[in-house]
Every structure is written in structure tokens, then in C-alpha cells.
Amino acid sequence: MWRQTLFWVIVSCILFYMTIPAIVVVMTSFNPGEILSFPPNGFSLRWYEKALTYPDFRGAFRTGLIVALISSTLALVIGTSFAFLVVRYVFPGKNLLEGILSSPLIIPHFTTGFGFLLLGAHLNLNQTLTIIIMTHVVLVLPFVARAVYVSLLNIDPNFERSAANLGASPFMVLSRITVPLIIPGMAGGWLVASILSLTEFSASLYVTASRTQTLPVAMYNYIREYTDPTVAAVSALLIIATMLILMAANHFLGLRKILAIDSH
């Protein structure tokens, strides 16, 4: 009993510590005053109205959404190919490829952004969506590749052998057995990539311009000029959006159980 109480106290402390920044921001967003201050001295939804109508944020959200959708989809295609290559084939330089694939975890985001800024200047691509998407693909690729890689490893090789044995050509094995079995992994990887892209800041700061800024960059620019709680309201909205996406992902994990893919 005593130990159980202690356990829950510790868990609550950790949870509180992890969520305190978000709680502070969300509370501040309801502040009726013009100044970012904590704790709030009233309740108002005016900053939410401003957040949703402010043209910079609307534009940046649209840009960010386009970037997120395109870059995570591209990353899905490239990452799936990489995962297949690494799981199914033995070739010289395989380890090196795996290393490169995971390098964005080693290379800081601002380095990637800075690199693409210099490259973009050279290729005359700066201030375009193309360079932002290129940057984001590099940033989210490891997460997609990893998700597909794990699902591929989890497939019993006998599923594919059995299908071939029953008369399925390599293409049919791929389309009827392998791909359906890794679709949960692909979709999960794609969702994570979308969220990461949507909220990525440091690399985006380098490669975006005022016309092509994504939401986190627009928020940063806003907070440099104004001190009202609009940014807090945007943050709260982003948290809600992310939560919705994560709930979708969780629904997706539920789907995995129905497909019984995670049971071996």
C-alpha cells in the first residue's frame, strides 16, 4: 500500500514535470491582457480568435501543411525503399547506408538547415517550397525508414515463402503479402514524419523566407515583434492538432492488433 502510494506520487511528479511547459502556455493563452504573463488574471478567447484570423499564421499553417504532406510522403517512398534494401539485400556498403540513414539523428537540425541554405543559394532555390521540402525530407526520413524497417523485420519470412509456394510471383508476393503487412508501419512512420515536419523549427528558420515561412517560424517572428498571448493560443491549437493526429495514430495501432501483425 505504502509502496504503491510512493509509486503513484513519483509517476505524478514526472508527468507534471513533463507537461508543465504546455500547461503554462495553455493557461497564458486565456489571459485577457495584452501582455504575455503567467499566471493569467482572467479568462478570454480573444487570442484564439486572433490566432485563427491572423493572415501570417494562416499562410504559414497552409505552407507548413503542404510541406509536411509532401515531405513525409516523399520520405515514405524513399524510406520504404531504403528499409527494403537494408532488410532484404546484402551488399557492400550496407552498414554505411544504415549509418547515413540515421545520420540526421547525429547532424543537428540547424546544420542541415544551414547546409540547405548554402546549397539553395548555389542552386538558386532559396525562398522556394522546394528547398524547404528537401530539408524536411532529410529530417524525417530516418523516422519513416525506421518504422518500415521494424515492420519488415517482423514479417515471418515463411509468409512470403508460403505465398510463392502457392503460386504467387515475386510481384504478387509483394503486393498481396509484404505491403499489406507493413502498411501499419508505413502509415505510423508517415504520421510521425508529418508531425515532426509540421512543428520543426531550427532547420526551417534557415530555409524559409517571409513568403514561405512555416508555422513555428511565423510564431518566432511574431513573438519578436509582439508581446500578446496570440502565440500561446497558436501553441495550444498546435497541441490539440497534434493530439488529434496522435489519436489517429493510436487508432492505427489498434488496427495493428486487429491485423494481428504485432503478435509475433
Binding site: D156, F159, S162, I177, L181, L259, A260, S263
Partner: peptide, 14 residues
Amino acid sequence: ETGMVFQSYALFPH
């Protein structure tokens, strides 16, 4: 055109 039964059965889970 061989018909194989695997030790793990390898029934397609989906």
C-alpha cells in the same frame, strides 16, 4: 507446383 505446410503454418494474418 509444390504444396508446403510450414511448422509455423505461416497462415496469412491479414
